[in-house]
Structure formats: structure tokens, C-alpha cells
Amino acid sequence: MKTIILKRNGGAASVAIWTGIFALVILSIWAMASYSGSGGGGKGGATLLADPVSVGDWKKGNVEAKVELLEYGDYQCPACGAYYPMVEKLIKDLGDKFSFVYRQFPLREIHKNAEAAAEAAEAAGKQNKFWEMHDWLYKNQELWAETSNAKERFADAAASFGLDRAQFEKDRNAREIAAKVQKDFDGGVKAGINGTPSFYLNGEKIQNPASYDEFKNLILSKVPSATANGTKP
């Protein structure tokens, strides 16, 4: 389009205008591309974790490791469900190099069973089966996400991996469990996130990686020995 105009018009001003327009369009596309994937639009705000990781947090992988990946997640969020296998694979492949921390960030306004799911995981944690419930919730997300008997299904699941069902039911209704979920949520809000999943690497918010390899390299880049070996991406 630019060249056609040039031939017909030939004015220097015209060239300048169309070059400017062309540059503006390209720049906009680039800007939108870098804005995308910023993890729920929380990019403009704070990028640091507000509540430091403490003993009350759920951890897996090498809990002694210097590298720490933290996720604010919502069990009913499809994006968290999509990242779940990626995170699991990271733990399997690099589990000795980093610790994984999971915090609850149920988006109650848009996901009706998210809070009940978070409470189910925390209640299972009371009987030392937090990660079992965590896995079950993500693996079976479609099964319970929009159902009206989600709580029932959670209890069935709890029983299926050997939890005392009555105790589980009692725990998940306990004020203490609701308070834990709320504490996680408030910490996320304080950090400035408004969406899930939101990942923090060593306390700093990262853009949601587009692929497993990107994610893996990001973590490796924080591992001291890996950087020394030159495997930094």
C-alpha cells in the first residue's frame, strides 16, 4: 500500500506519514505481544511477592533448594489446569534443583467451586494428603468444575485415597481452613495479582512461560551450577 501511494503522490510528507503509520502498526502489534501472557494483567503493578514463604506453605521438590517457584493457583481455572502437567514435569525433571510452593487464589467471582476446592485441598492437608488432593483436583478439573455437587465429589476423592471422610468433612468446614485460604488470597492481592496462574521465581513475578522448555530454562537460569555450565538460555 505504501509504495502505491508513493508512486501516485511522491510527496515527502506523504512518505513520512505512511512510514509513521506503518511503524505505529508494527509497534502496536509488538506492544500487544509483549503485554500478552503477563499473567492476569498484573504487570503494571507490583512484581514482588508480598508474603514471604513460611512454614505454613505447601512445598514440594527440594525444599532446601535455593531456587523457589511459587504459584498462586485456582483449582477451577483452566489455565492453571493447563500449567499443572508442566509444573509436575518440572518437579519430576528438576525436582532436586528447586522447591515448589503452592498458594490458594480462588477466583470466587467467576468460579463457583474454586473456594470449595481450595478448602478441600487444605483439609486433605490436615491428614497429610494435600498434594494428593491437589493432583486429583487438577487432573479431574472438568469433572467437577461446573457441577453443583462438587463438595460431594471432593469427599469421595478424599475417601478414595484413604482419608477419614468424616474428619475431612469436619476439617474443610473449619474456620481455620477458611482462614488459611483467605490468608493466601490476601497475600496475592497484596502482591498485586488479579489472576491465575501467577508464578513467582525467587520472589519475583514471572511472565507465564509459553512452553515447557521456556519454563525449564527460566528455572535453570536461577540455578547457580547451571549458569556456570553455560546452559543459560
Binding site: 502496536s28 501472557g37 492476569g40 481455572c77 489472576g195
Partner: peptide
């Protein structure tokens, strides 16, 4: 131009191949 920015953002999100994050304010994933 505003419309272009808006639609381009969603188009890029689509082609990035990543499930869009769930957000309270946007609610676009569904």
C-alpha cells in the same frame, strides 16, 4: 486504533497457544 490494539491483544493471546490466565477483571478464558 483503540479497537485495533484490543483485538490484536486477543489475537496474539490466541496464537501464543497458552491458555489465557483466569482473571477477576477480564474473565476472558471461558
Amino acid at each position: 486504533f483503540l479497537g485495533f490494539l484490543d483485538a490484536t491483544y486477543l489475537a496474539v493471546e490466541h496464537y501464543r497457544g497458552v491458555t489465557p490466565p483466569c482473571t477477576i477483571v477480564a474473565g476472558c478464558e471461558k
